[in-house]
Structures are given as C-alpha cells and as structure tokens.
Design a binder for these strands. Structure first.
Lengths: 138, 138
DNA sequence: CGGCATCCTATACGATACTG
DNA sequence: CAGTATCGTATAGGATGCCG
C-alpha cells in the first residue's frame, strides 16, 4: 500500500512495518473513525457533544472507536476527576495532520454528490437493459 | 459532515444532499474501496492484476467493491468482448481527484507507523496499572 | 456523564462452486 | 478470465442496563 517509506530496511523490518501499516489502516479507514476525526478537527469536544455531532453514531461505536483512536495516538483524552465525570477529546499533532486529509475526503464527497448521483442513475439504467460499455473492435 | 457546500439550498434539497453524501461516504470510506482506488491510481489494471495488487483482498470483495465504485462513477470499466474476457479498470476524472486524497491517507499511515506503534505501547502499558491521563486541579 | 458488558441482529467477508 | 451465487462464519453495530 504505497511503498517508498520502507526503502533501506531489512526484509524482516519491512514485513513488520507492512503488517503494522495494514493494521493502522484498518483502524482509521472506516466510516466512524474518519467521521470522528473530521468532527473533532481543531476543537475539543466532550463525549456527549461528539455523540451529537457525529451524524448517526451510537454511544457504543463512539466509545469503541475513540478507544482505538486514542490507542493509536490520534486523539487525546483528558479526564476531569469531577462528578459527574467530564472527558474532553481533541486531536493529537499526528491527528491534526491526518485530519487535513480526512477533511479533504469529506469535502470531495460533498462536492461530488450531484455528479455521483447522476453516475448512479446512468449505471442503474444500463443494468435494466443490456449493452454496457464495450471496447470497440478496430 | 462538513457543511458549506449546501449553503443557499432549500431545506428539502439540503436534506437530500445530506442523505446522499452519507451514502456516498459509506461507499468510499472503507478499507477495500480506499485501497482499490489507491492501487489503480493513474494506471489501468485488469481484474486479476488488481486482485494481486491489493494486499489481502478476496475475489469476491474486489468484484463487489468495484461494482459500487463503478456505479458511483469513481472507476471506469472497459470490457473487451474477447474469449476469455478481458476487463480493464481505471479511475474516472472524479476518481483521480479523489485518489490524491486517498493516497495522502496511505502515505500518512506509512509515515506514522513507528509513532503509532509507540503510542500503542504506552497505551497498553497504561491499561495494565491504573493512573491514566487526568486533568490536574489548579 | 462516560464507559463497559451483554444480548441479539445485520452485514461483511472468505471459500467454494458454477457460468459465459 | 471475470463475474455471480450460495453458504457458513465472523465481525459490526444497535439497544439496553449497570457502575463509578
């Protein structure tokens, strides 16, 4: 998945990095993780605020995904020893770098909604009757 | 999920765009779709080539995900009416734009492998004994 | 309030097998 | 070779409830 970073490593080390990269990618490249990262952004949000801000996420998935992101050093978790408890979430430095990319993904989605909607209609139409995109003989 | 694009729309239209954006995001923001997009990149690959290039993907998931990406107008599918059949996959213009972002995501992952690996070790250690990150009283 | 555990359903996914 | 269908398992994910 995008080499170049592993240049000049011993085979064993490359393999370990490869495996870790795959793991990390799995942690991050999923709907909830990406939405959470994008939502926190530059701000600091409490658990409940996040739960409300991330459209459609459940209490459970938020807690679960936050734990993974915290472990991976993408989000910071600050616990106030008050009662009732207060927990603030923010992005780490690494998380902030990541977030610029994630945000670009969200913006791309928004900007292509119409285009994609039309592509879908064309596709669904094509499915109805045969004759798809076929390379022409020359 | 990242507003601003829906400014100056009627409420009903905003809601439709909102729903579509969520759908599209679900299609794209998952491991396989992102890996496929990043792998195709600027090139044109046959089904079998893609299957080999995308680390760990199964025949089934590749076919399934490609269908979704094709429908969304992210990948182009060119069928050669030969026997045995040959099918070439490449990114559409929209897909190419998207791919720059996706690639940035992959690169970020690679570049932060060590950093994240260390963050994980610290996290796992913290879990063993209590005393987590707690806000100090002032 | 934040978080974990539990239960249950829905979906993701792999393996396999069959077609054109 | 590319694709679809089927089946079984595994994981995602919602709902609920209990604790500090």
């Amino acid at each position: 998945m995008t080499k170049q970073v592993t240049d000049g490593m011993e085979p064993a080390e490359v393999k370990r990095t490869e495996a870790l990269a795959a793991e990390i990618f799995t942690d991050i490249a999923n709907k909830w993780a990406l939405l959470i990262i994008n939502t926190i952004g530059e701000s600091t949000l409490r658990f409940t605020e996040l739960c409300a801000a991330v459209e459609g996420i459940s209490h459970k998935m938020l807690a679960q995904t936050l734990r993974i992101l915290e472990r991976d050093g993408v989000v910071d978790r600050l616990v106030y020893p008050t009662v009732p408890p207060r927990v603030d979430y923010s992005l780490t430095d690494a998380g902030l770098v990541l977030r610029t990319t994630v945000n670009a993904l969200c913006i791309w989605t928004r900007q292509h909604v119409d285009h994609i909607d039309q592509a879908r209609q064309r596709f669904d139409e094509r499915q109805a009757r045969p004759s798809s995109t076929v390379a022409q003989e020359t």
